[in-house]
């Protein structure tokens, strides 16, 4: 029984990162109608960013977030201007298809770039407090991962407030719902796209940083994290940041349950199976409101 609870706790902890990983993808998809399959690679880059800041400048990984997030914002803006600004001009159907292809090319290039820059080895950031654990009734809770879960929740909450309360947040939601109507109310829709893409990239960067502390990064994690994020988006639907976070937690728990029930190798399967079933069960309703 303790072993089971232990598994579930660990599942919940990584589930927070799934939620954070999915939040950015969901925002970009919901607003731009662009499916960025290189989202996992952006997470990977965030992880390496934090790793570099630690290795080269001695930054604590959590402190590195204060640099990784603005850096990722800027990188997201550049990516939008150079690549996705071209894609959003097309009609919505071609838009999704082309974005898939562009994201795919981007993923490939970033994977190869990461191998050149950081080699194919797994990296993770070790800190003086890396091994710290609190024990609750025989259940061990790694402190770093707990802090990551809390931070993930806080970041998602922050973006939620940004979208709910601010002028541009409202503009981004309006654009997501009906971009022509948004134009008619005087919203510069392309700027809303840019903001949403940059924020989505920043969320990916933050997720990557947290992954590199509690877990590990390597050039090959991109596809894996894109799939995790896609699964959560499919489970949670578009349009609600808190919903996405909960979706992430659910995936983390489901994975833990599968690993406990069928063995470790089946951890990866459960999400994909859920994903496929939900996708096929609601092929149109999924991303429509």
């Amino acid at each position: 029984m303790t072993a089971f609870v232990q598994q579930m706790v660990l599942g919940l902890l990584i589930g927070g990162l799934y939620g954070l990983a999915a939040a950015g993808l969901s925002l970009v998809f919901g607003v731009l109608k662009v499916l960025n399959v290189a989202h996992g690679q952006l997470i990977m880059l965030g992880g390496y960013g934090a790793f570099w800041l630690g290795a080269l400048a001695g930054f604590d990984p959590f402190a590195a977030l204060t640099l990784v997030i603005p850096g990722a914002l800027a990188f997201g803006a550049v990516l939008y201007w150079t690549l996705f600004a071209w894609v959003v001009r097309a009609s919505e159907e071609t838009r999704v298809k082309n974005s898939l292809l562009i994201g795919f090319g981007l993923a490939l290039a970033l994977d190869a770039l990461a191998v050149r820059l950081w080699t194919a080895d797994e990296r993770s950031i070790t800190t003086s407090y890396a091994g710290a654990v609190v024990s609750v009734g025989g259940i061990a809770i790694p402190l770093v991962r707990l802090a990551s879960l809390v931070l993930a929740g806080a970041l998602i909450g922050g973006v939620h407030l940004l979208l709910a309360r601010t002028r541009w947040g409202r503009a981004i939601r309006a654009t997501a719902e009906d971009w022509e109507a948004a134009l008619l109310t005087g919203i510069d829709v392309r700027r809303a796209y840019l903001l949403a893409f940059a924020i989505g990239t920043a969320l990916a960067g933050a997720a990557g940083t947290l992954v590199s502390v509690g877990y590990s990064v390597s050039p090959s994690i991109g596809l894996e994290w894109t799939l995790k994020a896609l699964v959560v988006v499919v489970l949670a639907g578009l349009g609600s940041m808190p919903g996405t976070f909960v979706g992430g937690l659910v995936l983390g728990l489901a994975e833990a349950a599968a690993a406990w029930g069928f063995g470790g190798p089946y951890r990866e399967m459960v999400g994909l199976v859920l994903f496929f079933v939900v996708l096929v069960a609601r092929p149109q309703g999924l991303f429509a409101r």
Binding site: R167, R170, R173, E177, D178, E180, A181, A182, T185, G239
Partner: peptide
């Protein structure tokens, strides 16, 4: 616009506030 094209998932006041976005 034709068909009103309101932001259905937002409140009345948010829709009105968006009108004053310019």
């Amino acid at each position: 616009p034709e068909g009103r094209r309101l932001f259905g998932s937002m409140s009345v006041e948010e829709n009105l506030a968006l009108g004053a976005f310019a």
